[in-house]
Amino acid sequence: MLTFKNFNVADWFSFYRILAAPFLLALIWLDLRLIFSWLLLISYSTDAIDGYLARKLKITSPRGSQLDSFGDQITLIVGLIGLYYFETVFITSNLILILVAFAPYIIQMIIAFAKYGKATAFHTYLAKLSAVIQSVFILWSLFFSPEYSLFYIMIVIGLLETFEEIVLIFLYDNWASDVKGIYWAYRDKRRLKKRT
């Protein structure tokens, strides 16, 4: 995944998110909320850019999908750490709901690693929608203050997306990238080929 000499332009945008994570953590440590928020916004923006470039230039690959997913996960974790640090009261007052919503994600990761030896990179429509809502909620909370309607929408969409990922793990015997959703999985030749 980190063989730099084979990186294309979309991969470098994905890698930026991984590279930016320690700097973002340092900004949290230094209590620089505004700078952290703007740089986190840039990291989230690269997620949209790398996907667009990969499709436009037709340079999608399993390595790129895995790198993109890893960059997404790192950015989400850093964003959540920043949200916890800068909005501690909100997080602690909603901790039970957050843990209940986060538990299926941990289960999904455990199942994926047990079956494939790595995280999934299905990149479903629900996953993309969930990532957008998560980033909007985190950035809105950091620039302004937490908005409960966005928070609840994020929780619901996140749970739906996680359950879909779990179903897809059971549908695919082997690791696969860029599956749009359950409906498309049933028509995916990669999955059908493995079943016959």
Rank of each mutant, 00 (worst) to 15 (best):
F113I: 15
I182P: 00
T92P: 00
L24D: 11
F86R: 13
D50Y: 08
A26E: 07
I59Q: 11
L76H: 09
G79K: 10
Y85S: 15
K115M: 10
P146V: 13
D178E: 03
L126W: 00
A26I: 08
R190W: 11
F151S: 06
F15I: 15
M109T: 09
L192N: 12
T120S: 10
A185K: 01
K194N: 14
E165P: 01
Y44S: 13
T92K: 01
K118H: 13
F102M: 00
L80F: 07
F23E: 02
L97K: 14
D72Q: 11
I91E: 01
L41M: 11
L30A: 08
T75L: 10
L192E: 12
S141P: 07
S14L: 04
T88N: 10
Y186C: 06
A21T: 08
L95R: 14
M109C: 04
R17G: 14
F144S: 08
K189P: 00
Y85L: 03
Y44I: 09
A48C: 02
F143K: 03
N94A: 04
L25F: 12
I166Y: 00
T120Y: 01
D68M: 02
S135Y: 05
L39N: 09
L32T: 15
K118Y: 12
R195C: 07
A176E: 15
N94F: 01
A131V: 08
I59G: 04
R190E: 01
F170I: 05
V9E: 07
W140I: 08
Q73W: 01
D188C: 07
S149V: 09
A185F: 10
F4L: 15
G64E: 04
S135V: 04
V136G: 10
A131G: 09
L30W: 08
Y52M: 08
S61K: 05
Q134E: 14
I153Q: 03
I49L: 14
V132T: 11
L150N: 07
Y186H: 13
L32C: 08
I96M: 11
V167Y: 08
T88Q: 12
L168K: 01
F144G: 05
D178V: 02
F4R: 12
L142P: 13
L30I: 02
D68F: 04
Q66G: 05
K128M: 12
F70L: 15
N8A: 13
V132E: 14
L99D: 04
D72S: 08
D188Q: 06
S69C: 03
T124Y: 00
W29L: 09
V132N: 10
K118I: 08
S141L: 02
L150W: 03
I74L: 12
L97R: 09
L53P: 12
K58N: 14
E165N: 03
A131E: 02
L142D: 06
S130N: 15
G158H: 07
T196N: 03
F151R: 08
E165G: 01
W29T: 06
L139I: 10
I138N: 01
Y52Q: 05
A26V: 12
I153G: 02
L2W: 04
A101M: 00
F86D: 14
L129K: 03
L67F: 05
T75P: 09
L80T: 06
A112Q: 11
H123Q: 13
Y16L: 03
S37C: 14
I110A: 14
L139F: 06
K128Y: 07
A21S: 15
I81K: 01
I42Y: 15
P104E: 04
H123A: 12
L34T: 12
G79L: 13
S14I: 04
I106S: 06
R190P: 04
F13D: 04
I49E: 07
G181D: 01
